[in-house]
Amino acid sequence: PFVIDAESHTLQYDWTLWFLHRPPGTRITDYEQATKAVKTFSTAQEFWELYSYLVRPSELPYTSEYHVFKRGVRPIWEDPTNINGGKWIFRLKKAYSSQAWEAILIALVGGGEGDFGGEPLGDEVVGAVISVRRGNDDIISVWNKSGSNGSVNLKIRDAIRRVIGLPQFVAVEYKIHSESMRE
């Protein structure tokens, strides 16, 4: 028989799932207000309970986003934790984006060595976003605190490639949040 372990598996960090949907043809004037916190979780069981009820990105309407960030970090550039940071951005075919998003989430919240856990990545990586867009691709980004730390940023890029099996020919772009705010 299958036995479920009732013991709680506490995560290294507490995480909050956020959601944003912008109906086609509308503009968001207050991004922070439009992005709603759904639930904060601190154990593996709470994560899987939440995840089991989520609509997969491939089934979300266009211009929807999931954000998973450490507790207390708002998923906006201007948050004090994010203000000096940046993000790795990559586009994936819709047929693969839900699977890649799941792999990123498991690596992010699970915090295992070789993923985004351990030092220095465990403290440095603050969240991830999947943006469901019209067309053939969705956008996934992994956010970190120190936009100017090139060696750590390259380790994050390499961890992303490893976690989702991203081939070398798939382009990834790093963007510092302060540059995004100026655009």
Rank of each mutant, 00 (worst) to 15 (best):
P1N: 14
F2L: 11
V3T: 13
D5K: 12
E7H: 05
H9S: 14
Q12C: 03
Y13F: 04
D14R: 08
W15Y: 09
L17S: 07
P23E: 12
P24S: 12
D30Y: 05
E32D: 02
A34V: 01
K36R: 06
A37I: 05
T40D: 11
T43R: 08
T43H: 06
A44P: 00
Q45T: 10
E49W: 14
V55N: 12
V55Q: 14
S58W: 00
E59F: 05
L60M: 14
P61G: 13
P61F: 11
E65N: 12
Y66P: 11
H67M: 08
H67N: 07
V68T: 11
F69D: 11
G72R: 10
G72K: 12
R74Y: 06
W77E: 03
W77R: 01
E78N: 06
D79F: 13
I83P: 06
I83R: 12
I83D: 09
G86L: 04
R91H: 11
L92S: 09
Q99R: 15
W101S: 13
W101D: 12
E102K: 09
A103L: 14
V109A: 10
G110V: 03
E113S: 08
F116W: 04
L121V: 11
D123L: 05
G127H: 04
G135L: 05
W143C: 02
N144R: 07
S146R: 15
G147D: 01
G147N: 03
S148R: 12
N149E: 15
G150R: 10
S151W: 13
V152T: 15
L154G: 03
I156R: 02
D158P: 01
A159V: 00
A159W: 00
I160P: 01
R162Y: 04
G165A: 02
Y174A: 06
S178R: 15
S180F: 08
M181A: 15
E183Y: 04
E183D: 13
